[in-house]
Design a protein around this nucleic acid. Structure first.
Length: 508
RNA sequence: GGUCCGUUCGUCUAGGGGUUAGGACACCAGAUUUUCAUUCUGGUAACACGGGUUCGAUUCCCGUACGGACUACCA
């Protein structure tokens, strides 16, 4: 396949939703696979929805997930600027062209007039209350007003918008890479506003102009754009760019985990899982939205999980590195139906990735979340992670489960104590602690043989007292391999903990 | 309401005119394990419905139902 030029074009209205991340991933995979270019364009034409910090968030989030931008906001490139608010004059120029060719017109209608028109049509029983071929001649625009009046209004600074003059009776054909042929009759398309009264373009104009100018070959975006895609086709035609029109691929939506509808922040909060890659604090409300990163997810696991929501390679392999995904990806294996978001699967991916990471890489997560005052050498951290890696689901589980390595237990599991803290246990542990105190180095092997020697001489089964030993050392009823745990703790610490349990725990 | 898009186990999905409809997650059971977890083995569980076409339809066609998106001077 020839190198593609694809773009990811979010608007900076808040944190980047996980669905947006998936869209970015698919774009990126196609770009990398074809040795093409991944472009980041910021669609900030709605000044009223601008949220400070959102753009930085988008950049950081993509970086964390592992998506590198080749061209665009943050890196620059031959088609700069890549922020639409900085390209106003460009859109203006093409709007003028459409006007000159009779494919667009000025409209002066106020909001009230538009409202009145819709109500009138509704009352008349019309199924379609749009500003369109059937209604435009009844409105206040350059098609109905004498030219002198139009000029007067424009010169006097009267607010206006520029609308597309959609042909009244025509079938628009569109080939979508995922859905095949899609046909829409122009009677269903309204005379969309192209330029707003504040001088900014709407998405429709800006998107088409930029995609053309930036030589985009494939538009991969969410399904919510499918209904307006025919409108975009019309724009390409009117602008004379039909031959350069990119290929479209409209992605299925991400659905809420239960019930129906598209995934929203409310659902995520309700089910207790994140919806954004990184933590996000809304600048106006101060409300915190949890990120996948802060919730203990690995970026490559999230990427893998997301890539599989709506796409699959057709084989039974599920764990894919970014490189493998790049090689295996293909647009025609993207499904058509919406995918329900199941956080269990994400957790499973995370667990798999955690297990496959090197102890060295994992140690960083443990070191970053040590209990206050605790110190730990990198070497020890790696050992602990190696011991724990089969038992964790999230990155923060390391610190959680490793806590007893850094803090002696302050409480003991009551259930184990009442069941296992008996005379036999006390006898064995007393002797074991004694044996340990004469040892210099302690390996898991030595810890084990030493214990077996003690139980053998006392004639007590080792298995009978292991739970008591564990509770003395960690306070908990369950945990990682005891012998290795003792090796990491060291003989003096183990002996001290046993002695302390011996002196604090009541005899049964 | 209108337009467009969609519908295989609870979930993500493979498949495709004749299959025991496959895998994964989740769930359940068993095995292993000093515990919990891991791991292993096994199990429950799906072609929305109705008409065609056909020797045969889950697969193709048409309807219906259900779901979703869109229907802004938001993207």
């Amino acid at each position: 396949m020839k190198p593609v030029r694809v773009r990811f074009a979010p608007s900076p209205t808040g944190a980047l939703h996980i669905g947006g991340v998936r869209t970015a991933i698919y774009n990126y995979l196609l770009a990398k696979q074809t040795n093409g270019t991944m472009i980041l364009r910021i669609e900030d034409t709605d000044q009223t929805r601008f949220v400070p910090g959102a753009e930085e968030y988008i950049l950081k989030a993509l970086e964390w997930v592992g998506i590198k931008i080749d061209e665009g906001v943050g890196v620059g490139g031959p088609h700069a600027p890549y922020r639409q608010s900085e390209r106003k004059s460009i859109y203006h120029q093409y709007a003028q062209q459409l006007l000159a060719d009779g494919n667009a017109y000025y409209a002066f209608d106020t909001e009230d007039e538009l409202e009145a028109m819709r109500n009138r049509l509704k009352a008349a029983g019309s199924s379609n209350q749009q500003y369109s071929a059937t209604t435009r001649m009844m409105m206040d625009n350059s098609l109905t007003l004498p030219e002198s009046e139009v000029q007067r209004k424009l010169e006097s600074g009267h607010p206006y918008v520029i609308r597309l003059k959609v042909p009244d009776s025509e079938e628009i054909h569109l080939h979508d890479l995922i859905r095949g042929e899609v046909n829409v009759h122009t009677s269903q398309i309204d005379d969309k506003v192209l330029m707003k009264s504040d001088g900014m373009p709407t998405y429709h104009l800006a998107n088409v102009v930029d995609d053309y100018l930036m030589q985009i070959t494939h538009v991969i975006r969410g399904e919510e754009w499918l209904p307006s895609a025919p409108l975009h086709v019309l724009l390409y035609r009117f602008l004379g760019w039909e031959k350069q029109m990119p290929q479209f691929a409209h992605l299925p939506l991400l659905l809420k985990p239960d019930g129906n509808g598209k995934l929203s922040k409310r659902d995520a909060d309700k089910a207790g899982f994140p919806l954004f890659p990184l933590n996000w604090i809304d600048p106006t409300s101060g409300e915190l939205s949890k990120g996948f990163r802060e919730s203990g997810y690995l970026p490559d696991a999230l990427l893998n999980f997301l890539a599989f929501l709506g796409w699959n390679p057709g084989t039974e392999q599920e764990i894919f590195s970014l490189q493998e995904l790049t090689a295996a990806f293909s647009v025609d294996r993207i499904g058509k139906a919406g995918a329900r978001f199941d956080i269990h699967k994400a957790q499973w991916f995370n667990q798999q990735y955690l297990k496959n990471k090197s102890n060295e890489a994992l140690a960083a997560y443990l070191l970053a979340a040590l209990p206050p005052g605790a110190t730990c050498t990198p070497n020890k951290a790696e050992k602990i992670c190696g011991l724990l890696k089969d038992r964790v689901t999230f990155t923060h589980d390391f610190a959680l489960q490793a806590q007893f390595f850094f803090e002696a237990p302050t409480a003991y599991d009551q259930h184990v104590v009442s069941k296992r803290w008996n005379d036999d246990a006390i006898k064995v542990l007393t002797a074991y602690s004694h044996a340990l105190s004469s040892l210099t180095g302690l390996t898991a092997e030595v810890a084990k043989t030493t214990l077996e020697n003690v139980t053998a001489t006392l004639g007590i089964g080792t298995g009978k007292i292991l739970q008591a030993l564990r509770v003395a050392i960690s306070g908990a009823a369950s945990g990682p391999d005891l012998m290795v745990s003792m090796e990491i703790l060291g003989a003096p610490e183990v002996a001290a903990r046993i002695n302390r349990a011996l002196s604090t725990l009541p005899k049964v």
